[in-house]
Design a binder for these strands. Structure first.
Lengths: 146, 146
DNA sequence: GCGTATCGTGGAGGTTGTCAACGATGGAGG
DNA sequence: CCTCCATCGTTGACAACCTCCACGATACGC
């Protein structure tokens, strides 16, 4: 009959990707909770800390792969927590640059360590070389669609 | 000063994982829409098709990494679409086995091809050997927490 | 100047994640 | 046999998330 036999679900890369992602996100969220952050807000904070000359919310949305309207809420939350500020850009008054406060940088530091430690649980079985390869592949998946 | 310099966000495996996962899920959802499915319902359908002697909803939740209460709704949806049935298990009357209908198997077949094709876009830059390695790593991430 | 595009923002509607219950059934031990 | 406790499916509530559309403000090409 040879009916109904595609690849098993447990070999489907999309499925594996989202299941593993969920796993890591759960672990990271739990670790970030004590710092008042979630993965989303943490990501925004880190990107803001990295950009030397600031990032507007549209660029942020692009990097994160999110809708700009979500970034508004995330930045709102970080502003309320005193971790970032919205600064007026001189070149384009439509945009608001998201820049970290001094406290934001401190929290980012501590939260980063907690997140790294938490992620060691699900990623513990992967060696350094494997993690590099994984990073490379995931980055290429991202760039494939743009 | 050496302040605020953990690894850049773009190198964080958790971040890359969830971003790539979102990408693939979006592409797959778009492809499955014409078959009346989403990644979630599709995953349930495929697992049901694979299990020779049926799967109860608790096992399904375990494989999928979901809360059992979510599986109820997903199976409800598939039942309403006529793709699976809930069968009483003989050994344990608490459980309901989720088994595909004939139409469910047909739809699974067609939807599977559409999903595979859609996923080629984000995964296009990965060779076969790389996909095998990726599968292996993602599976180990899953089993690390169990 | 004038039309068009882009930025941040807000709102609507649907999906997902998490958690705590509840009735029904199974199973172990007295 | 009966009682206590675990497990199964199910429901409900609530927060988070995603997607899309629309608006005012600003920039830019013509």
């Amino acid at each position: 009959m040879e009916v109904c036999m595609g690849q098993p679900m447990a070999d489907d890369l999309g499925f594996l990707l989202s299941r593993a992602s969920g796993q890591v996100v759960r672990a990271t969220n739990a670790a970030l909770a004590e710092h008042g952050l979630r993965v989303r807000t943490y990501s925004v904070l880190v990107f803001a800390c990295e950009a030397a000359d600031g990032l507007n919310q549209r660029e942020l949305a692009g990097f994160l792969g999110l809708d700009p309207s979500q970034v508004v809420l995330l930045v709102d939350e970080l502003v309320a927590a005193g971790l970032v500020e919205r600064q007026a850009a001189e070149t384009d008054r439509r945009t608001r640059l998201v820049v970290p406060t001094a406290q934001g940088r401190r929290v980012r530091e501590a939260a980063g360590e907690a997140a790294d430690a938490a992620v060691e649980v699900p990623l513990g079985l992967l060696g350094d070389a494997e993690r590099d390869r994984l990073r490379d592949m995931l980055t290429r998946i991202w760039t494939a669609t743009g």
